[in-house]
């Protein structure tokens, strides 16, 4: 009986002493943290993708709490909705940024761009790019080794087996920009999602002269400037033999798509054009 009592008392006393020490230590080393950081973090999507330019959601939340003006900050994953919530927590103003999307600007499918060599090294684009210009004659185009797929934390980009090019899943893409920085060839760009997802863009990054570019890839932008002349809004500029469509000026009229001799300009998510289905259906028929 005595033993039990002594044990209980000793251990109890020890526990109490430890608790008191712990309390004082905790007081002494207490770190003050703005409770709003937690609140903002709660609102954020917790994807930790780094798309905002900060290392993870918590760092972004801290930055938002610290900053006086958060109108330039944006969480690409959560979009305007999340930013509005975060702004409400902080009582700050936020502008709704236009939702964006990753766009792959290469049209060098196996058909358009014949393979001249075979790459047999470590299968990452970064290493292949540091070694040589790629399997095809186009030293600007996609290597098809999937660094962008590796980089994507949202499973929103995959390699199309047939074309050998990456494809962005529009539903899943949050425009965090991880693939953009992963691509050693700067093929991927974040562009405006557009109304109903409608976009027009030049699907090529080749800066070679027209004849050279066309020789290696039948769907290359040859810098012919037809689109530049055609565009009624001045949204297209040709620099270094390469056309670029400014998505803030483009009104999605699609006139450039029609004039492009190599079909390097792509339109997506538009309803089918009237003359086009006819051609397609005849093609289908002939195929049958």
């Amino acid at each position: 009986m005595n033993v039990v009592l002594i044990t209980i008392i000793t251990l109890g006393a020890l526990g109490a002493v430890a608790a008191i020490i712990l309390y004082f230590v905790a007081q002494k080393f207490k770190v003050f943290e703005d409770p709003r950081i937690d609140q903002v973090e709660e609102v954020l999507p917790a994807a930790n993708c780094g798309g905002c330019g900060f290392p993870g959601c918590r760092a972004f939340a801290e930055a938002m709490v610290k900053a006086d003006d958060i109108s330039t900050m944006n969480c690409p994953v959560g979009g305007a909705e999340v930013m509005a919530k975060a702004a409400a927590v902080l009582g700050k103003e936020v502008e709704a940024a236009a939702p964006k999307l990753a766009v792959v600007k290469c049209n060098g499918t196996c058909e358009n761009r014949p393979r001249l060599t075979t790459y047999d090294g470590a299968s990452t684009c970064a290493i292949a790019a540091s070694l040589y210009g790629g399997e095809t004659g186009c030293s600007y185009g996609c290597y098809g080794l999937g660094d962008c797929v590796e980089a994507c934390t949202f499973d929103a980009i995959y390699m199309d087996e047939e074309t050998g090019l990456p494809v962005v899943d529009e539903e899943k893409c949050v425009a965090c920009g991880a693939c953009v920085s992963a691509c050693p060839k700067n093929i991927i760009e974040l562009r405006k999602q557009g109304p109903k997802g409608r976009r027009v863009f030049v699907s090529c990054v080749n800066k070679d002269k027209g004849a050279v570019a066309r020789k290696v890839c039948s769907a290359a932008c040859i810098g012919c400037k037809k689109c530049e002349k055609e565009c009624p809004f001045g949204a297209i500029t040709v620099v270094n033999n390469l056309a670029y469509i400014d998505d803030s000026k483009c009104k999605l009229c699609r006139k450039c798509v029609v004039v492009c001799p190599t079909n390097a300009i792509h339109e997506v998510n538009f309803p089918p054009r009237k003359p086009k289905p006819a051609i397609e259906s005849t093609e289908k028929k002939s195929a049958e």
């Binding site: 393979r115 001249l116 060599t117 075979t118 790459y119 090294g121 470590a122 070694l131 040589y132 399997e135």
Partner: peptide
């Protein structure tokens, strides 16, 4: 046939 290119 196409040449193989690989790092040393």
């Amino acid at each position: 046939n196409t040449l193989t290119v690989s790092p040393s």
